[in-house]
Design a protein around this nucleic acid. Structure first.
Lengths: 188, 188
DNA sequence: CCATTACGGCAGTGTCGTTGACATAATATG
DNA sequence: CATATTATGTCAACGACACTGCCGTAATGG
């Protein structure tokens, strides 16, 4: 890489004696910024998941079970194929996880009203309890981060995270956020 | 937890005129906020990693190899135990990954100057090339998100992500950010 | 009636993580 | 110098979680 005069933490729009910044140095800063973001994603995800992993391993469950519990809890009555679309794993991988969760009484399945082929999945009381326990661990970590960072930062966090994900995930998030505000039942 | 009648995802607080916001509804909003953040982490990580996975699978490599390449690239001359502390995996897991990367000529190892027991790891030209290829995929995604979100949002994103991770990871990030600005060689 | 859909299941495979035990060389310390 | 301790390698075995491919069944819908 070329020589960088590397100004302090200069954000793209810092704009001091702009003409001393070469194009190369600007590009370098942008690249370094992106690499720092890679680090951030790795460490935040690593440490966010590991607090739940500790609880899960005591029960002989894994991350895959947590993910299923989470999305079933947030979408009661979700069908298997909807869940597959969220998790992006194969039917078989999900089947293994679900059979464990159903077998241990964390998840119930009832046939769809309009289409009886579907299994609509929901958490049992035990399932909701376990999910809550896992959630609480992650909530602590997150709440601390939100508190220290402040409301503006949280808003920015959301914007960037949303931008990283793909279109279908954004659509999903839009739905989730809407539900949080207007507690109307949706069609199913 | 209160039993809900399990009917269509009805949310507890209806949130009508503002002064009727009870403590419970405020708490609820905080909880929903946290659950939305769980979603964000999941989707952003899922979609951020999958763009690199596509390249990796063509080469018969996996995510573990990418992580190793990334952190070796960012810390040339890193020792095995330092890398282990970052990745938080076992010696054996890393050994497998490293032997592949060394075998295919992506990583070189040279004994430490002051401690000749150490293997100091660096990327070869081929390794740097592969890492760059993977990086470019992720950079595109990230750059789009950063651009749409704006500088203030990016700063907030960083603050929150930093808050989520554990102390040692924050210390690491501090080091990485410092190096980006003062291009001095560090002691090693 | 027939194609499609939503699901269940089996067999086999691969990646990536784990534990535990043991070996070796270099360094640090008494 | 003898002895920890450290940094690393290695082997065997295993577990979690993902994959592919293929087949089966039942319900739906044109």
């Amino acid at each position: 890489m070329s020589d960088r005069k590397a100004e302090p933490s200069s954000r793209p729009a810092a704009a001091p004696p702009a003409d001393t910044k070469t194009l190369a140095s600007l590009l370098f800063l942008r690249e370094e910024e992106m690499r720092l973001a890679q680090d951030l994603l790795f460490f935040a995800y690593r440490d966010f998941t590991c607090v739940a992993d500790r609880v899960l391993s005591e029960l002989g469950l894994g991350r895959a079970h947590h993910r299923a519990l989470h999305f079933i809890g947030r979408n009661p009555g979700i069908s298997v194929s909807e869940l597959l679309a969220i998790l992006r794993i194969t039917k078989q991988s999900l089947a293994r996880v679900l059979s464990t969760l159903v077998g241990r009484g964390y998840v119930t399945q009832t046939p769809g009203r309009s289409d009886r082929r579907q299994r609509r999945l929901s958490l049992t009381q035990a399932g909701a309890g376990l999910e809550r326990q896992l959630f609480e661990r992650q909530r602590e970590r997150l709440a601390g981060a939100y508190r220290e960072a402040g409301g503006t930062a949280v808003e920015g966090f959301r914007r960037v995270m949303r931008g990283i994900m793909e279109h279908d995930a954004r659509a999903y998030m839009d739905g989730a956020e809407r539900e949080a505000h207007e507690p109307r039942a949706r069609p199913a």
